[in-house]
Nucleic acid binder design. Structure first.
Lengths: 209, 209
DNA sequence: CAGCATCCGCTTTGATACTG
DNA sequence: CAGTATCAAAGCGGATGCTG
């Protein structure tokens, strides 16, 4: 990106992360940690491969991303956020929170990856009964199953399958997100196609903050 | 901006405010309130006028900016943030905070407008002795004089001149910002060309949070 | 296959000139 | 004052090719 050439913090920040795709690349690594080039590409549907390579170079130059050689037997390149890159979390949080009202029904052209659930779950959901036993919720939406677990008053989502989840949500991501956030009641979500099994109270322990 | 086409809050937010210049336009209105087209242009050195017109239209469409007809005798168009636009403040705050380390010495090609001081002062400075009488600091840097005043434990900056300021800072914006933030000591700033008169303790009451 | 680089058409941006 | 018009340059998206 060309510099704005303004002595202003906001402009300087945008000089570095204001390029198209840059913050979404940060999102991927903030969500999943160290990633291979191809994993990044899969998590960023729509990006041109040369742009991904360009951005990774620029972010590396800016000290936001570092490149690691994975040890054998994998022997591949891994991309990971530096501490400076991780420090962008409050920025993504603020933007994501502001975007709340924009997350309506899933559009016909909207791509979705299951792991995109992890960031909002971690940043915006709390466990309103942190002293009871942890809750496990299985989500089936998108390209892979996800598990949401509560730990220490917070909620975390990771790819995987739970053995005995308290609840299972299956359906499009807008319905799943709607129910998890409490924005959408269970009957309304079911009417729109969500499949729900288990204990709804387990879901209601999660609360936006 | 073309949509990323991703069902993810961050991507949806960037669909709306990720365009080049958009957040800087928001900065201007968040800092100064309702503004005329030409005032906006003056506060955004480097923007092409057609781009400013385009962005204002897009931001208006997105419900972030509204257009007002100023009453006579002014009879001009004013642009102002809607509540939805003002809700972007935490985003600018997070980005600005992250940019701290990027605000080194003023670059040869960096433009500067005095009122850019207002946002960092309001968002990052507190009065560490809120119960004492308010402090007034005059800043002379850039295109117009600015006054910083403490009120209710916070600091505010506005264009203008104080009659009897506790301190007066004159010099390049990097030195002024350095001294105000405490990042730069007074002797070091003076050695680099800052002119300081008055009570340094008044400045030291301001503290980054 | 992972990790790019190159090429090409299209869109966006930037600089400047002009207008009601 | 508040834009529109025009045109060149840069950036982006998509396809494809190359290399270890």
């Amino acid at each position: 990106m060309r510099s704005y050439g303004q002595y202003c913090g906001l402009a300087k920040a945008l000089d570095v992360v204001g390029d198209r795709w840059s913050l979404l690349i940060v999102r991927e690594m903030l969500t999943l940690g160290a990633l291979r080039y191809t994993d990044l590409r899969d998590g960023l549907p729509g990006i041109a491969t040369n742009l991904l390579a360009d951005r990774l170079r620029e972010l590396e130059q800016a000290g936001i991303v570092k490149r690691e050689e994975a040890p054998p037997p994998v022997a591949t390149t891994l991309f990971r956020l530096t501490p400076r890159g991780e420090a962008l979390e409050p920025v993504l949080e603020a933007l994501g929170r502001w975007a709340g009202p924009l997350m309506g029904a899933l559009g016909a052209r909207d791509a979705y990856r299951s792991h995109w659930l992890a960031l909002p779950v971690r940043l915006y959901l709390t466990d309103r009964q942190p002293n009871r036993r942890p809750v496990t919720i299985q989500v089936r939406s998108g390209d892979q199953p996800m598990v949401i677990e509560t730990v220490g008053g917070r909620a975390l989502a990771r790819p995987g399958t739970a053995t005995k989840p308290d609840a299972v949500l299956t359906g499009t991501p807008d319905l799943v997100m709607g129910v998890l956030s409490g924005r959408l009641g269970l009957p309304a979500a079911r009417a729109r196609g969500l499949s729900f099994q288990g204990d709804y109270a387990a879901v209601r322990r999660l609360q936006p903050r």
